[in-house]
């Protein structure tokens, strides 16, 4: 196997592994659109990274966190519904990113690779970063697991039982921001949320406990990365979309094998 394929596989599997349990929480907490909005704002982070001459990943994390904070603040005003706010933030930050990038004439940015990912261009340094940050992210999630699950089940009840709700929620947002910054390389801004949600939704068909669902989502994500890369190699498909299509196919297969489990009363 070519070494760039191997690197892509390792990087993709690493990312899919830490996206699994995180994606489960996104599904449980109905935050799919929130994840999408954070991902969209990541392009602005890329633009700012270039503009200010700082690390691009750092730029992404910074804009994601800013967006999350903006959302929390705007939510306090109670003027608009959450999905409207998310829609405004999501699309304006994506557009702002595109505008800023267009402004920087001297810079030639491969926009497509940011929007749809470029996993085949992953280098060894990227892999080190992915595994270092990924391990940290999983470690943080392990600490957050119980309080976060408790908040997901019932926020007030968790608070009465002494869970530090705000701190946990902020840490969770930070976690999503970091993982999105990592995952951009693989599937790109427009498809990042799919790697969070589709494996988790697939895992729901088989899981009997929250932890099972998280771990299963990781495995299914890794499988999707493998199948997608294979498809991309054999049929010369764009790798990011191929991975997402593979995940979608796995989801459909899971529906066929365990029909109606999600809708079970």
């Amino acid at each position: 196997m070519d070494s760039f394929i191997l690197r892509a596989l390792v990087a993709g599997a690493g990312i899919a592994a830490c996206m699994g349990p995180l994606g489960a929480f996104i599904v449980w907490r109905r935050m799919a659109y929130f994840g999408d909005s954070l991902a969209h704002s990541a392009l602005l982070g890329v633009a700012l990274g270039f503009l200010l001459g700082i690390n691009v990943s750092l730029g992404i994390v910074a804009t994601c966190v800013t967006l999350a904070v903006a959302l929390v603040v705007l939510r306090q005003q109670r003027g608009l519904a959450d999905d409207t706010l998310l829609g405004i933030l999501s699309h304006s930050s994506l557009s702002l990113g595109l505008v800023v990038i267009a402004f920087m004439e001297t810079l030639r940015v491969d926009l497509v690779s940011y929007l749809f990912g470029d996993i085949l261009a992953v280098g060894m340094v990227d892999i080190y970063i992915i595994f270092a940050c990924g391990t940290a992210a999983i470690g943080l999630l392990a600490v957050l697991w119980r309080p976060l699950l408790s908040i997901t089940v019932h926020e007030d009840l968790a608070r009465v039982e002494g869970v530090p709700v705000l701190r946990t929620q902020i840490a969770f947002m930070l976690l999503i921001a970091i993982v999105i910054a990592l995952a951009m390389k693989v599937v790109g801004i427009l498809l990042v949320t799919s790697l969070l949600i589709i494996p988790a939704a697939t895992a729901r068909q088989f899981a009997r406990t929250p932890l099972q669902m998280g771990i299963l989502a990781s495995l299914i994500g890794c499988l999707a990365v493998g199948l997608g890369l294979q498809g991309s190699l054999v049929w010369d498909l764009p790798s990011g979309p191929a991975i997402v299509v593979a995940a979608a196919v796995l989801f459909c297969v899971s529906l066929a094998t365990r029909p109606g489990r999600i809708w079970l009363r």
Binding site: V27, W28, R29, R30, R146, L149, S150, T152, V153, L157, A158, E161, A200, A201, R204, A207, R208, T209, P210, Q212, M213, I262, W263
Partner: peptide, 17 residues
């Protein structure tokens, strides 16, 4: 509890203590 969250009674109880 969201239908997507596979929770047994045991796990629900353990969340409290």
């Amino acid at each position: 509890i969201d239908r997507t969250l596979p929770l047994t009674v045991r796990q629900f109880l353990l969340l409290g203590r």
